[in-house]
């Protein structure tokens, strides 16, 4: 089975709202896929479901054929929007932590990436700027040899140079067996990097197509199409 992610009638409801409504989605390996939609559309809910941080209300979600659990956490590498590393840890300690808990973690690669950024591993997380913290987290996440990388808003709130660095890291770490799922609302900056896009609006799947198909058929950029589909 080559699909890395399969959602069947996936629904997530809370007391007051339906975050995801009957999502049917299949993502193949070896792709860089954009999960696009406005804030509150359900993107983060989907990513949390993939990572086992939420439980579906109905329907199923499978990663490489397995329901979310310890087996899938082994093959999914998650970059949340927040700073989720303990503030008091030194960068080197966070690397030790990842090395300890993830078999697929490549310590050498992580240190190389840190080195290229001229980041002192002896610094504590709390002394770093927000942008630097995010880069450290990205390095940790991308230093794992996972099958599915879930990046939640990796380029939001960082300067253009940092954005380039992040995109560059994603591209350089690409491997044909793994899929990178990037959730963002900053489309223009990453269009050229995406193979496919998934549009989510108010919890429903609006579109899942390849970037080339859209550009050829519609003759417009994903950014333009997005603005049309999600017009307020």
């Amino acid at each position: 089975m080559s699909a890395i992610l399969e959602c069947n009638s996936l629904t997530k409801k809370y007391a007051s709202l339906t975050a995801l409504n009957n999502i049917n989605l299949s993502l193949e390996r070896g792709r860089i896929i954009g999960l696009l939609g406005p804030n509150g559309s359900g993107k983060t809910t989907l990513i949390k479901l993939i990572n086992g941080l939420l439980v579906p209300t109905s329907g199923t979600l499978k990663i490489a054929g397995n329901l979310p659990g310890t087996a899938t956490k082994k093959v999914v590498s998650y970059l949340p929007e927040k700073t989720y590393l303990p503030d008091w840890m030194k960068v080197s300690e966070t690397i030790d932590f990842f090395k300890d808990f993830y078999e697929d973690f490549d310590e050498k690669k992580a240190y190389e990436m840190l080195d290229r950024l001229h980041l002192d591993p002896q610094k504590r997380m709390k002394t770093l700027s927000k942008g630097t913290k995010e880069k450290v987290q990205l390095i940790l996440v991308m230093s794992r040899k996972a099958d599915l990388y879930c990046l939640d808003e990796p380029i939001g709130g960082v300067d253009p140079a940092a954005r380039d660095y992040i995109l560059n890291t994603i591209i350089s770490n690409y491997n044909e067996n793994a899929t990178v799922l990037i959730s963002t609302h900053l489309i223009a900056d990453i269009e050229n990097v995406l193979d496919e896009v998934v549009f989510i609006k108010e919890g429903s799947l609006m579109l899942h197509a390849s970037v080339d198909d859209i550009r050829t058929k519609e003759g417009k950029s994903i950014d333009t199409l997005f603005r049309e589909v999600f017009k307020c």
Binding site: G30, R31, D164, L167, N168, I171, Y174, N192, V193, D195
Partner: peptide, 9 residues
């Protein structure tokens, strides 16, 4: 990486 595009592309 140089062109900032997807390796597949």
């Amino acid at each position: 990486a140089e062109a900032t595009v997807n390796p597949n592309t």
